[in-house]
């Protein structure tokens, strides 16, 4: 373990990695000595070739994978021995768009998007207008009664994005959020992320899409050869 120099004092970072290494099972390390911090209100891209470990890094932030070594802190809290209750609390402060969407097939698009609010125990009437508005914004106003298997890839992606945004998280993680939509809609969705960022959310978008990254002047975390390089 490295010294506590990076952790000393009041830690404002939303996410902080220190010398994190990660391997799946007994395989080789997918990530080695990864250190970075995501500040509040910041906007950054995570890029790198396919198989470089972008999804793995996002999973580490989501605590759906645990690092083999190194320290991960979220919202100023070191997470290695976290209780399941605190974990739920942390996850409510994050929104995530999965590369494979992970919509629940037995719930309508509307119910999928409303899910983060519903699991907080809120009454359906209290969030209905909000959810419908966001669905219209992402162009799913006509499709909200449809079950996900009947949505196109792009529609699923937009539903997944809406679900990640609906609870106004402090940190948004998006894994290839524009991979299945045309460039025009991709830009529209990017505007949504920028808007969210302006309202105070820290955003981390994993993408290979250089045209998309060029639209925003933002830091880039570049993964390659298991290591992380920060550009800009």
């Amino acid at each position: 373990m490295s010294g506590g120099s990076l952790l000393s004092g009041a830690d404002e970072s939303v996410v902080r990695f220190e010398n994190v290494g990660m391997r799946y099972g007994v395989g080789p390390e997918v990530l080695s000595d990864v250190s970075f911090a995501i500040a509040p209100h910041s906007f950054q891209f995570l890029t790198g070739p396919s198989g470089a470990g972008k999804t793995t890094l996002l999973r580490l932030i989501l605590l759906s994978a645990r690092p083999s070594r190194g320290l991960v802190s979220l919202f100023g809290e070191e997470v290695s021995g976290i209780s399941s209750q605190r974990l739920t609390g942390l996850r409510r402060r994050m929104g995530v768009v999965f590369q494979d969407f992970r919509l629940l097939d037995h719930l309508t698009t509307y119910e999928n998007v409303a899910l983060p609010l519903r699991v907080q125990g809120r009454a359906e009437t209290s969030y209905r207008a909000e959810v419908v508005e966001l669905l219209r914004w992402v162009g799913l106003g006509e499709r909200m009664h449809v079950l996900p298997p009947l949505l196109s890839g792009g529609e699923k992606q937009r539903a997944a994005i809406a679900r990640a945004l609906i609870a106004r998280p402090e940190l948004l993680l998006a894994d290839e959020p524009t991979g299945n939509v045309d460039p025009q809609l991709g830009r529209r969705l990017l505007r949504l992320f920028i808007e969210l960022n302006r309202l105070g959310t820290s955003v981390l978008i994993a993408t290979h899409d250089h045209a998309l990254m060029d639209l925003v002047d933002a830091r880039r975390f570049v993964l390659g050869n298991n290591h992380l390089r920060i550009e800009g």
């Binding site: 989501l62 759906s64 739920t88 996850r91 409510r92 992970r102 899910l115 699991v119 125990g121």
Partner: peptide
């Protein structure tokens, strides 16, 4: 399993 995982990610606690 998949559903439970997603519920966890969107902030549902074990109790819920």
């Amino acid at each position: 399993r998949e559903v439970v995982e997603v519920l966890h990610f969107v902030g549902a606690g074990d109790d819920y």
